[in-house]
Computed example of a mutant assay.
Amino acid sequence: MQLTTSMRRALVAGAAATALLTGAGGAFAAPAAPPVTAPAAPSVAPSVAAHSPYGRLRPLAALSAERLASGDLVAAAKWGTGAPIDDPVRERQVLDAVAAQARQLGADPAATMRIFRDQIEASKVVQRGLHRLWDADPSQAPDERPDLGEIRKEINRVNGELVRAVAASPDARSAPSCRPLLAVNAAHVRHERRLDALHTVALARALRSVCTAYAAPAG
């Protein structure tokens, strides 16, 4: 594959981001150090960047982080209720819905479901982490319980945008450059949103199967 100048710059930045966000086994891993400034994005015109592999992967990282923010609210809604974090019925509904939307868009439903399984597991990482924190220090627990039904409406909205981002990025997700470019995007999202260690771990989990060459096999 012939790389453009912008692609080369992104791959150079990706080397640093990969060191930050990937482990020896090839999966993203949370860094032990505090957050650092993300590598510089490739210097290209916005109209070009939006249609480049880098630009097509950007929404996947950004929407994954947005979806994880809803995990905080889900954790608060379930806190103190005895409701389990695992919800197989709800998970099946989500997977069926995104697979149906992927078919409507002409996207690969199996790949879409694989990515969303990771999204669901990433949300559980956030929920479990917050419940452990609140168990250890009740003073940090939420004072109010959000409406889980309203939260799920927002999650469904993000899910729809994320399915469209998956459908718009098959070439970028299958390219050899996917992993370093996704790592650059993840590092930028982490920096912009000032993600803590818990949410950095969760973002890594959410993005595990985005690059098809590295996608985990369906279970």
Rank of each mutant, 00 (worst) to 15 (best):
M1A: 11
T5P: 00
M7E: 15
M7K: 01
R8H: 06
R9I: 07
A10L: 01
A13C: 11
A15V: 13
A16S: 14
A16N: 05
A17V: 08
L21C: 11
G23C: 11
G23A: 09
G23S: 12
A24S: 13
A24W: 13
A24Y: 08
G26Y: 05
A27Q: 15
A30N: 03
A30R: 08
A33G: 08
A33S: 13
P35V: 13
P35Y: 02
A38P: 02
A38C: 06
A38G: 09
A40K: 13
S43K: 14
S47L: 14
S47N: 11
V48M: 10
V48C: 01
A50I: 13
H51W: 03
H51D: 13
P53I: 01
P53T: 05
G55N: 07
L57T: 07
A61E: 04
A65I: 06
D72H: 08
V74P: 00
W79L: 10
G80S: 01
A83H: 10
P84Y: 03
P84G: 04
P84K: 05
I85S: 01
D86Y: 09
E91I: 02
Q93P: 00
D96H: 04
A99I: 09
A99H: 08
Q101N: 05
D108M: 04
M113S: 15
R117S: 04
K124E: 15
V125F: 00
L130E: 04
D135P: 01
D137R: 14
D137C: 02
P138Y: 09
E144R: 15
G149T: 13
E150A: 15
E154L: 11
E154G: 09
R157L: 10
G160C: 09
R164F: 12
A165G: 10
A167M: 08
A168L: 06
S169I: 07
S169T: 12
S169E: 12
D171P: 00
A172N: 11
A172Q: 09
C178D: 06
R179S: 11
R179G: 04
R179M: 13
P180D: 02
L181E: 14
L182K: 05
A183R: 02
A183V: 05
V184S: 06
A187G: 10
A187N: 09
H188S: 12
R193L: 12
L195R: 01
L195F: 00
T200W: 02
V201T: 15
V201K: 15
A202I: 09
L207C: 08
L207G: 03
R208M: 05
A213N: 11
